[in-house]
Amino acid sequence: MRDHEDQAKTGPGFNRRDFLKGSGAAMAATALVTQDQEAVAADEAKGVVPAKAVNITLKVNGKDVTLKLEPRTTLLDALRDHLNLTGCKDVCDTTNCGACTVMIDGKATYACARLAIEVQGKAIQTVESLRQGEHCDAVIDGFVKHDAMQCGFCTPGFVVATRAFLNKNPNASLEEIQKGLGGNLCRCGTYAGITACALELAKKGGA
């Protein structure tokens, strides 16, 4: 089983030799250090440093914005921390939950899975673009009508996923909705309302 956390966080501070100095019980802990971790540690030992921040221009909700970002900055961090577009949420950071879903050239995409630098020139659409003042996209209105939310933290990601899905599948069936929205996770359990909303819109051609 991969351990994302270890890949991301375990560096030279985690010293295999020192750890294993402990008692017999720790001998079993060899499994703690994976090849990936050793590779990370080896890289850092060579003094790998992040590349300097560069100008990155993103087309977000129809406007070009230029940010000075390290090349390793994800689209998610760029949107949330640098553009204050916090509708996309940072939940799993490993492309499992869909809370960070945005549309890139119309396609539902996990913003945590893309670097900002690689989506320059593409049309990035966040959930905020689906509301202009009092006027909301039918998906937002439908989520409210069917109470397709509780804590609301997964909700914007689901809204974007639903919008993108219905754009491509305006007359989707229940089965297609269940498959098409299977890339997003909710913890409070709002699937019944989301399904009802998507089904109702699909019966009206998705708008």
């Binding site: 204050n84 916090t86 905020e128 937002i140 009508k145 909700t155």
Partner: peptide, 21 residues
């Protein structure tokens, strides 16, 4: 009665602690 904060939440404008920036 639809929830009072429904639009704020669904449109991503609701600010959670994680969004305070």
């Amino acid at each position: 009665v639809p929830r009072l904060d429904g639009v704020e939440k669904a449109s991503g404008f609701a600010k959670y602690t994680y969004d305070v920036n």
